[in-house]
Design a protein around this nucleic acid. Sequence first.
DNA 1: CCCTGATTCGC
DNA 2: GCGAATCAGG
Length: 235
Amino acid sequence: MSWTEERIATLTKMWEGGSTASQIADELGGVSRNAVIGKAHRLGLKARPSPVKANEKKADGKKKSAAPAPSPKPAAPKAKPRGAAAAPASQQAADTSEGTAAKPAAAKTQDGNVQPNPEKRPDLPKIVSYGPGGFLRQGPGDQQPPIPPAPPRRLVPAKPSPEIADKTSLLDLNDRVCRWPMGHPGEPDFHFCGDKVNPGFPYCVEHCGRAYQAQLPRGARRPPPPLPFGGPRVR
DNA sequence: CCCTGATTCGC
DNA sequence: GCGAATCAGG
């Protein structure tokens, strides 16, 4: 998988939208969580509430009297190279007092993170999915005015992005079947309409009626705009 | 154990 | 530039 513009856009949107790297990787598909994180950092959009980085203080000389690594750099020699012949020698020999016996299993609730969208429904954890354009798609009960910047303007033709096309390749999707998405990506029953397309359009006749709004005479416009990916459920 | 992001470094 | 391996905190 390569980082196309769409994929980078989705990654950026989701990353800034607060999705975890795993969610992003799962949504993008074909990439691992590490790949997402690595790419995010390479893109320069890092710095999000990290469980590891939340703490920032100076390392005072508390323990570790034995410092066998007088590296010229005072900076952190934390991560060890994996492939190299790293000498795993004396490291835990000095920690017997507190490292071995005293290990309080402090694994308790891990629900301390701040959710931008406090769900009131405990049945569904948090379904955040993203449309082909990369904008945040909200569920029916998630109505909340100020979430992401704004959906992209001018989505007139409602043309599905290559992301959908990727998933279509897994299914029996080609240029002659309707690409109208049924359900949401990631759900087990997510699929496409699959009917014969309206010639010249990516959708069947029925869904063309939903994707394309007839240009009515002025003053007789229909308020509800067609949003193939924005609505709650289309089925 | 699980999860998370950060970082390093071989490719 | 990419991402697996690794680290480290919750």
